[in-house]
Design a protein around this nucleic acid. Structure first.
Lengths: 205, 205
DNA sequence: CACCTAATCGGACTGAGGTCCGTTTAGTAG
DNA sequence: CTACTAAACGGACCTCAGTCCGATTAGGTG
């Protein structure tokens, strides 16, 4: 119960023992391979541990949960995505009006969902979902854009509400069960954001 | 794998054997009591089976899954809710303009979430979530109201998107983790619907 | 009442996520 | 090189949802 002790380390730590670093790498490598080969849904944590040549205890001490492991495997893409959001070209990156950036953000997230559906479903299971670093970054990004576009709205709440429309569960349901094409989901997002967020008042081009 | 065989029965069936009916009742009764005493999160399916004096196989044949059991326990409330939606007083029932009805619908759902948080979380876990009768009814209701209010929009998609804002996971996160008061969530819903759905064009009072 | 059969029962079993704790080892100090 | 300690290891173990299948029984038939 002591939170300062035995926390899983998702990222390399300078003061990390050599064997720990080696095992983290092995695990990530094995997980990436297995997820890729069989699809994330068909890979158990035991499978990962065995493929990595590591005990189950080690696996869980490193990554804490299945969801965290999936998130860690995705973290490279995620880093690229965050880079594009923060420093990339408009409309995803800075420079475009906030509403356009929000739309681009959602479209990009939907592309990511399309490309890594199973992994994202795995990463978004359980209550951990809302506290993972990636989700936190997404929420902050949306939050700031909302504040910029509409200083009077309840941006804190609206950010989470809008992000709910981009959840992996919902995506799977719409895409696979209800067979909606990706473009339709993107259109839906555009409409949702357009109606929810006011357009920039600075000359609309 | 034969779908016509061994399907769980959520509702009483005329051609149901006496012992089956008795056990279904026992299970529902025990589940209600246990969920109430300890909170749904602290009750395992084994607990329910034991308290009902019934084998685990029976429990699962009757209700199919934990989520379904939780939904069944909620079904009384749900029946009342559906009644109020379909035949009740406006603005929840028919008579009010669709946008007002949508707002009232969300507020009522948020009240239900507030009152039965844990049970609804249990009922909404897993992919079953989108196929449960209750959710289907909610979606259909929202869908029809959306079509009425805005015949040109992609109501199918928008219905699911709006409902995502009323999901139990999100509710728990906002309410408990981020400590937002219920009224704030209702305000958020009102704003979301107001901006997303056009007002009725028939004289606005 | 005796029999028959199909529906039902129930608990042993599986598989998966997650925890525990005795054992091993990396890194350091002497 | 040896001794020491904190960290890391790993697999046995736990809990829990969900499945399977042989035993049981409801309820119709003669």
């Amino acid at each position: 119960m002591n939170a300062s002790f035995d926390l899983p380390q998702f990222e390399p730590d300078a003061s990390e023992r050599a064997d720990a670093a080696r095992n983290r790498e092995r695990i990530l490598c094995a997980a990436r391979r297995l997820f890729d080969e069989r699809g994330a849904g068909c890979v158990s944590m035991d499978d990962v541990a065995e493929a990595a040549g590591v005990g189950k205890g080690t696996l869980f001490r490193r990554f804490g949960s299945r969801a965290s492991l999936a998130a860690a495997v995705l973290s490279e893409r995620e880093r690229g995505f965050q880079e594009a959001i923060i420093r990339g070209e408009p409309p995803l990156g800075p420079g475009a009006p906030p509403r356009e950036r929000l739309i681009a953000f959602g479209e990009a997230l939907l592309d990511t969902l399309e490309a890594h559906t199973e992994l994202l479903v795995a990463a978004e299971t359980g209550p951990v979902r809302y506290t993972h670093p990636a989700h936190t970054v997404h929420r902050l990004h949306v939050l700031l854009l909302l504040r910029e576009a509409d200083p009077d709205c309840d941006a804190e709440l609206l950010a989470d509400t809008l992000l709910a429309a981009l959840g992996a569960d919902l995506f799977v349901h719409l895409r696979r069960l209800r067979n909606m094409p990706l473009e339709r989901l993107k259109d839906g997002w555009r409409v949702l954001v357009s109606r929810t967020v006011p357009a920039d008042e600075r000359l609309p081009a």
